[in-house]
Amino acid sequence: MSSAGGSRGAGGALPARTLWGDTWRRFRRHRLALSGALILLLLVVSVVAGTFLYPFYLVRQLADSGIPVTETSPTLTSLVDHLDYVGILSPPSRVHPLGADDLGRDLLARAIYGGRVSLTVGLVAMLIATSLGAFIGALSGYFGGLLDNILMRITDLFLSLPGVPLILLIVYLFRDSVIQAVGSPETGIFLILVSLIGGLSWMETARIVRAAFLSLREKEFVEAALALGADDSAVMFRHIFPNALGPIIVAATLGVGNAIITESVLSFLGVGFPPDTPTWGRLVTDGSQYLQVASWLAIVPGTLIFLTVLSINFLGDGLRDALEAQQAA
């Protein structure tokens, strides 16, 4: 592989090049992946910063427009439901930078809130799927034999379950009792959604990890670790696992995007979060009622979902190129 970029030391001493440093160098060359990472970073930062800063702006603007917020300490969560009757269906303006919906609720506030929900769902669902998949794949690939057989049959079975219809069925049947058990509709639905999305998307990771473990367990360093007296769990998770990290990271990245799409689809179908929780998918549904008069209401949140998932997919693609070369090296 030809060395591109990287500053050479003048005195002949080369700066130390690490494995991850090389990966980063390769990743940097993938322009689409780099822009994906930047856009994603921008979105995350805006959602986090917006949660804390945007309420000040909105309260100020509403006060200037003559109808101040009556609440004593408005937060993003309360402003999401603030009704500005003057601003009903108003196009983007100074008071409402992204416009307001049919009840005069500020779209930017709702988009920030929705972004928080969507990104959290994506991340947590991915964490569940990845840890489940990595664990099952590791057991399967490391021990082989009967255990491998059983686990892989289960994986195949999960692969032949109908995803979205099954999630719809379970949410429909269990929604009320989980909400009752947890006490809050939003937390309840959140828990159901992340465990369902995560619990139905670990299979690919399991297969990748299994394949990696199958080949890695035959390597000399595993033999060495075993000879030194390391027990199975140490060999699996301290020695083999870090070597299989590349493909896991790629699958996990793409998993976030898929989870965000699934959540938005459920919200769109009205089976996701409760109607008063503004998720991106729900905002698109609500906005779709006003396509003729206020098309931005649906277009803005829809574009946000699209942009987020597109960035994640480009990022995943770039990571794949960068990390698979690491594997090959």
Partner: peptide, 22 residues
């Protein structure tokens, strides 16, 4: 293809509706 599998299908549908039907 990246655009195709990153855009939620309900959003493609809405955009089509907005442009071609509305």
């Amino acid at each position: 293809s990246f655009v195709g599998f990153s855009v939620p299908s309900f959003f493609t549908g809405l955009l089509l509706m907005l442009v071609f039907a509305v």
